[in-house]
Design a binder for these strands. Structure first.
Lengths: 335, 335
DNA sequence: CCTGTTTGACGAAACGTTTCGCGTCGCTAT
DNA sequence: ATAGCGACGCGAAACGTTTCGTCAAACAGG
């Protein structure tokens, strides 16, 4: 590989001048600039990012940490993120926390050691003193995605879950549903909490009393949902509609219904917060919210870059991206 | 951050000795070793990977390049890969080629500039002179995954597509199918070529003549399959079974069937090379091969690490991972 | 014409490691 | 005794950049 020294030799200038031309950090006469650029092209010089990082103390790499990349939502996020950052010359270190706070913190440390310019994290949001520990561990511009923390320490981008819940409840209400089951996730995870809160609030607004036994928590694994839905549907007075907050729940729910010989929407309506993509061609096609992952990524990237570039740091802010309701065929009207 | 100098000062030894104790590159007396380790703990020293990379000319990062991370198969691969490598202290740079050779080469160059220790690539396998260009661009230990190249320049791990095709054809044959449609992908992509070849060979073995008009190529986008399947099913003598080679095809096929008011397995049997995960609870549950992604990742990681560590480089080898057939409900017996 | 400021260029130090080569010590074999 | 050899430890160079401080020349204002 050609080094900056080769360029300097070739252009008959000092190393300093080459660096100044490339980075525009100091005035260089037009004549020399031309010579330098020519020399760069001739020797095929490309700056060594490692050396640059060492000297500057920061890289042009950002780190992405998600709980599980094999969840479609996370994969799409990774894709958009990578696109957003590669466009501005950044590349992406990637890691899974496997939803384990210890792994998450360890990955954060590894990434920090690698001097990432910034971090995009879908936080596990668990473990004692989580928030404080996060603040203490992270010393790099960071934006949180999907799950936000009660304390506003970091920029965050998340779905507008209250709005989403409203859309779902109003839609079901319009179809005549009154006995609506809601499976909440782990308490303390903002996405779950907000969806549940939104559900409660909108039910209130529509004037329908929530039947307590239809709200189940915590249901965050596929198998939880598999079991829970079977309990729900074998009650003496089963729900006419079931709300799932994520893919794992949805998968478990469908399997559980199948196991009882039931199906949606004939025996019960099913609706989900998490978009389920390959809907066409399979039945039932799940009516669900569609999350605007592209916007989420763009906003997150913007927030992060602003924080990386600015010296005057604004207050951390939370951006909520509105979802849209994709009506398909898993919900039917009841009398 | 504590530096190695701080440790040296604290342990009252030279920087050289600290480095030697950490890396075991030179003999150090037990007494000093103890002092050094104690000092390291006391000042909370962690070696700076950037400085180390600069000096050694190589990092402990490996680069992963896939065409599209949002394809479930690729997401699972990324997950297993990341796990495999993080276990041995490596981390992962990640990029999508978006199935564009230019992007792929550019990502390879970026990663090379970052001095990745190795590369895991699902090659786009397209563009003129692709293979030669790849050899010319890559100067780092590399393993190719899923798609292999005719020239054996790189270690490769791929599904045993011939075996997979055999399983599929024999299964369909046993169910009585004779008019089997096969949608091949782009010619030149090994996974597609091999699957098609395996299909042809096994059909031969079973003594069934292939109806040429039922073999369609190239069909690599969802929409191609959507159109193709509708052509197939409106023929005067339509196939009784359709083989899909990947998810995109499968999705298009199901949607296309739906558009004709047809469904599997009643009107036609559908089987796929690409595993379709959330089968339970939806109908039809697609009978498909299940790819052993965990094994693929492990093997790939092993090959790569061997090449990174060994000085005597063995011949590049190709490992074929056998799939398994998951019989579900999208195929039925015909008379 | 002198002083003060700006412009342009450069040498050298610095970032935090690893590694090369040298020096010292104590031991063994002559 | 002493030459020779391992074992151990250290100073300094090197990796490829960026940046600090210096300096000469050009230019402005009085």
């Amino acid at each position: 590989m050609a080094t900056i020294k080769d360029v300097a030799r070739r252009a008959k200038v000092s190393v300093t001048t080459v660096s100044a031309t490339i980075n525009g950090t100091a005035p260089v006469s037009d004549a020399l600039k031309a010579r330098v650029w020519a020399a760069i092209r001739e020797v095929g010089y490309q700056p060594d990012p490692i050396a640059r990082n060492l000297r500057k103390g920061v890289s042009t790499t950002i780190g992405l940490i998600v709980p599980d990349i094999s969840i479609p939502w996370a994969a799409h996020l990774a894709k958009s993120m990578q696109r957003a950052f590669s466009e501005i010359g950044y590349n992406m270190l990637f890691a899974s926390s496997e939803d384990d706070p210890e792994r998450e913190f360890s990955e954060i440390e590894v990434f920090s050691a690698h001097r990432v310019a910034g971090l995009v994290v879908v936080p596990t949001s668990r473990g004692e003193n989580y928030s404080a520990r996060l603040v203490e561990t992270i010393h790099v511009p960071t934006v949180l995605v999907d799950r936000v923390l009660p304390q506003r320490h970091f920029d965050s981008v998340t779905d507008d879950n209250l709005l989403g819940a409203q859309m779902i409840v109003r839609y079901l209400h319009k179809l005549g549903h009154r006995d609506i089951a809601f499976m909440a996730g782990r308490a303390g995870i903002s996405s779950s909490d907000e969806r549940l809160a939104g559900f409660r609030r909108t039910m209130d607004e529509t004037g329908v009393a929530i039947r307590g036994e239809l709200v189940r928590q915590p249901v965050y694994l596929r198998d939880h949902a598999y079991a829970t839905v079977q309990q729900l549907m074998t009650m003496r007075d089963p729900p006419t509609a079931i709300v799932c907050i994520n893919i794992a729940q949805l998968l478990g729910t469908m399997a559980g219904l199948g196991n009882l010989g039931l199906s949606a929407p004939d025996d019960v309506s099913v609706i989900s917060f998490d978009g389920f993509h390959p809907a066409e061609g399979w039945s039932p096609a799940i009516t669900s919210l569609k999350q605007d992952i592209a916007t989420t990524s763009t906003r997150a990237a913007e927030l992060l870059m602003a924080r990386i570039r600015e010296e005057n740091q604004p207050e951390p802010q939370i951006i909520r991206v509105p979802p849209s309701l994709q009506i398909r065929s898993s919900c039917r009207a009841v009398e």
